[in-house]
Design a protein around this nucleic acid. Sequence first.
DNA 1: ATTATTGAGTTAAACGTTTAAGAAGGTGTT
DNA 2: AACACCTTCTTAAACGTTTAACTCAATAAT
Lengths: 341, 341
Amino acid sequence: MNKTKLTLKDVAEQIGVSTATISNAFNRPDQLSKSKREEILAQCKKIGYSGPNKAAQILRKGTSNIVALVLADSISYMVSDPVASTFIKGASSALQENGKHLLLYAGDSNSIADVVDFVDGFICYGQPRNVNLIRELAASPKPVVTVDFDIDNKPSINIDNEEAAYQVASHALNKGDSVAILGLRLIDSPATCRIYDSPLIDVETSIAHRRLDGYLRAAEDRNVVVTDEAIWHLPESDRHFARQAAKEVLTSSPRPNVVLCMSDIIALELLHMALEMGIKVPQELKITGFDGIEEAERARPSLTTVCQSSSQKGVEAAKSLLDHVKSKNTLPFEVRLGETV
Amino acid sequence: MNKTKLTLKDVAEQIGVSTATISNAFNRPDQLSKSKREEILAQCKKIGYSGPNKAAQILRKGTSNIVALVLADSISYMVSDPVASTFIKGASSALQENGKHLLLYAGDSNSIADVVDFVDGFICYGQPRNVNLIRELAASPKPVVTVDFDIDNKPSINIDNEEAAYQVASHALNKGDSVAILGLRLIDSPATCRIYDSPLIDVETSIAHRRLDGYLRAAEDRNVVVTDEAIWHLPESDRHFARQAAKEVLTSSPRPNVVLCMSDIIALELLHMALEMGIKVPQELKITGFDGIEEAERARPSLTTVCQSSSQKGVEAAKSLLDHVKSKNTLPFEVRLGETV
DNA sequence: ATTATTGAGTTAAACGTTTAAGAAGGTGTT
DNA sequence: AACACCTTCTTAAACGTTTAACTCAATAAT
């Protein structure tokens, strides 16, 4: 029919009203009479004008209905991790309900500059690899909400990781135990950036720190000594890394009889390897996980772990962003007793 | 420092050149002398101008570096499905390498109108639920590439589903067998829209159709009769649906001794249920899958299936879009013989 | 009968860029 | 010396909207 894309101006001329009126017909029904509005919309439909151009709206209105989801690790990894993908699920459905779109943003990139101008806000899931990215998020003119990660003065969604770790560890630990910890990357561990060196950003602390604190408190309560050598720091909650670390732990001597794992993926890998090696769980080896993924419940023996709802986190994160909540939100958790302690 | 966001105009005034020159300094280095360019960029940095506003660029340039990934089913489902998430992996990494961003778009929404104006193109993964959405994609002014789905006159990425199904079925079938098929939603099955009724869109055919054709050809070759009652159409490749259908198949009488499944997820669920029921695989029941996911290889007995690389599909789809390829691309597949036939 | 108030629509100035076309000056050719 | 041709930069018109401020009637209030 029409050679080139119709604009508001074209349509206004054809219908014989001002562009403002057409615009109002689409955006502000209260600004014109009901009859005129309906007539205009009908005409537009007939002419083949499907509504104001979104690119122009983004510029003019300063809003795009796009929310960027900054994923701590690469998108590839995040999409296949059960915890992260469940989070994405929750976030995306909450956003969709509110007419927002989700832009996946890799946390290993080093700047948000290429999207910050048009995006409506950021949900940051986990601790991004790149310091500069964190710094930019901290200084972002657009709203930011963080999850499983904390930036001072920005809203966040989290659970009480210290308390959760303390509780789950308490179920596993007894006086005289020899314990190992399969942890996640600490924010200031050598493999990563020494974020505390930078005075500009005020990152409170990572979940790995909080969980470690909880584990250590539980150990201390029972007079169990945890040396630095008994703590492994995996770069991420990945089966491959987990398998390697599990091997090291199980072949170290003396072999620990309790291993506290900061994720279920890690714990399950350890569990499988232990069973392969003929180690009796929980008699010779107690294991705790973290997250409460389905697979942990299906495993035999079933895993003792901390249950938290990733999808709820996603929903809450989206809500916080949309409602311009400023405060930090601490969600509940629950220790699920399985057969591994 | 600065109260309000700096614009190109502000910066131009401060530095004492025209806006065009600043713009060129950022976008078209060949349009001004090297020395001037460097001076300008240095000044901008000092002033705190981080480059042209992206929202304005989108409008003016008509390009955003955003690619929408239209997911046939809901985002929630897609993100947790191993096949789909592997696809997303491939696509996102290829796009990221080319500086493109990924917008997740739910295929159960009924229009692309709210993004078509600013997005650079669409990758459509699978057959969207909504006819209107398909119609809009078919008529989209922006490039579209489809995967595991076909729209006439649009490029697509696929494997030869008919041949793949034929081959895998051929490994399982023998004269005298009683066969059932656990299939996926056909494009014109009653539960969905009768897409062929609409003359406006020319959707070639769904992968479910092609696979069914392949299965039936293999059956015919061996004089095996497949009645309509022996064919189940699951709405999607979901564990829940699969479990229900598996139950029906295994309790039907006479019980088939060969079941051809259109996805590994379905096949694995059937396998588990068969084992639970004490049915010997493959002696009493042969099973074939489709996709070649990891879990299929790990299963005991391991699954006979068609291997195709979802991540490669993602990469190819992204490439096709970025390179403006117009032709359809048929990728290779491979039958992996497991212990279930 | 005069003044306020409201309703419906218009005008025109943004929003922050990019880019075709043009101007000014310098270099090379004949 | 005249001319064409670069190079480097500027001018100004898009890109397609939204929205504050305004006009003009018509209705309500005093």
